[in-house]
Design a protein around this nucleic acid. Structure first.
Lengths: 202, 202
DNA sequence: ATGAAAATTAAACAAGTGTTTGATTAATTA
DNA sequence: TAATTAATCAAACACTTGTTTAATTTTCAT
C-alpha cells in the first residue's frame, strides 16, 4: 500500500500499472488481486487507511481552554498543515482523484473528512464571534476553500515552487523545510486578518 | 478538441480513450492520429490553445489609472475568476494534470501562465505598498497559492459544493451563479484584509 | 470531366492492461 | 510427521489501449 500510494500520487492511478506497484513493493503481480481483490479495491483500501489516520489526527487536536480564539485557529491551521504534510503523497492522490471519483466509499470518506474539518473550524470561529473579536456570518464552506486550496496548491505545484525558491526538486526534505513554515505563517496571517473585526467597523 | 477537453476534464486524460473522444466528436478514431499525430499531441494542442487564450485574457486586464491599488487588486481577482470560470473545463484538466506532467511544452506553458499571474499581482501590490496602504515584503508566490488554490479548489470540489449549497450537481449554470459571486466577494475580502496595513501597525 | 490530393473509414496491429489459473513452495495444525 | 491451509509464482487469459494500414470517398483545381 505504501508503494502504491507513492506511485499513484507520483504519476496518477490510471497511469500506474499493477505491475509497477508489484515491482516497487517487491512482490508478484498476482498478490495484489489475491490480497486486495483488484486494483480498484487496493485504492479503496488506501483511502480507508489514510482517511482513518487523518481523521484520528484531527480528533487529536486539543483545545486548551485557556487560549484565545485566534490562537485556537492558529493551532488548527498548524495541525492541518502538519498532518497533510505527513501524509502528502496520499493527500495529493486524494485531491487529484476526487474530481474523477465514482466510487461511493471513497467519495463518502473524503466528504466525511471535509465535514469534520468544516465543523472543527466552525466551532473555533463561533467562539471568537461570541467573544466579539471575529466577524459573524462567515461562510465557512468558502473559507475552507481558501484553507485547503492553499495547502493543496502548495503540494500540487511542488516542482514550480522548487524552481521559485531554488530548491533541488529531488530534495523533498529541503522543500518541506522551506514551504511548511511559510505556509503556516501565511495561512495564519491570512485567516486571522480575514476573521478579525476591523478597527474601522467597531 | 472541445469534446476532448470536456472528457479529459471530466474523467481524466488517462481514463479517456481516443475512441471516447472520437465518439463524442462524431468522427472516426483514426482522425485523431491523422490530424494531431497522437493522443498526447492532442493534449498538447489543447494546452497550447487554451493557454494562449488565457494569456490573451490576462493581457486584456486594463489598469485604469484613476483607481486605487485596492481596486486594482479587486479587478485582477475578478478577471481571474471570470477567465478561469469561462475555461473551467480546461483549467480543471490543467490543475489535475500538472502534477503528473512530463511533457516540457505543456509544463513550460503552465509555468509561463503562472509567472504572468505573479507579475501581474506583484505590480499591483507594489503600487499599493508605495502608496503606504499595503504591507511591504509580501511573498507573492505564497499569496498566489491562496488565490489560485482557492479558485482551483472551488472548481475541483464542485460536486461537494453543490451538496453544501443544495444545488443539483447537473445544473452547472446554477452552480456558477452561486459560486462565482461568493468566490469574488470572499477572495477580494481575504486578499484585501491580508494586504492592508493594520490600524494597529500605523 | 478528370486526375491528383485530402479526408474518412473499417479493420488490423502490437503492446499493455487487470485478472485468473494451476502448479509449487512455505507455514501451520493436529 | 503427515495433512491441510496459506502464500507465492510464472504463465496464460481476455480485453482495451493508441496507432497504422489500406481501401474508399470526397474535394477541388485544372
Amino acid at each position: 500500500m505504501e508503494a502504491a500510494v507513492r506511485l499513484f500520487a507520483g504519476k496518477g492511478f490510471d497511469n500506474t500499472s499493477v505491475r509497477d506497484v508489484a515491482k516497487a513493493a517487491g512482490v508478484n503481480v498476482a498478490m495484489i488481486s489475491y490480497y486486495f481483490g483488484s486494483k480498484e479495491k487496493l485504492l479503496e483500501a488506501i483511502f480507508i487507511k489514510y482517511i482513518t489516520t487523518m481523521r484520528a489526527k484531527l480528533e487529536e487536536i486539543v483545545f486548551a481552554s485557556n487560549v484565545t480564539p485566534a490562537e485556537k485557529i492558529d493551532r488548527i491551521l498548524e495541525s492541518y498543515i502538519d498532518t497533510i504534510a505527513a501524509n502528502r503523497h496520499f493527500h495529493l492522490l486524494m485531491v487529484r482523484e476526487q474530481g474523477v471519483m465514482k466510487n461511493k466509499i471513497m467519495y463518502d470518506g473524503v466528504k466525511s473528512l471535509k465535514l469534520k474539518n468544516t465543523s472543527l473550524i466552525k466551532g473555533a470561529i463561533k467562539a471568537g464571534a461570541k467573544a466579539g473579536i471575529f466577524k459573524k456570518n462567515v461562510d465557512i464552506t468558502i473559507l475552507g476553500l481558501t484553507v485547503f486550496g492553499t495547502i493543496n496548491q502548495a503540494f500540487n505545484t511542488q516542482r514550480f515552487l522548487c524552481e521559485q525558491y531554488r530548491i533541488n526538486p529531488e530534495n523533498e526534505a529541503e522543500f518541506l523545510k522551506v514551504i511548511i513554515p511559510r505556509l503556516k505563517t501565511h495561512l495564519k496571517e491570512v485567516v486571522r486578518s480575514y476573521l478579525l473585526v476591523k478597527e474601522s467597523d467597531k
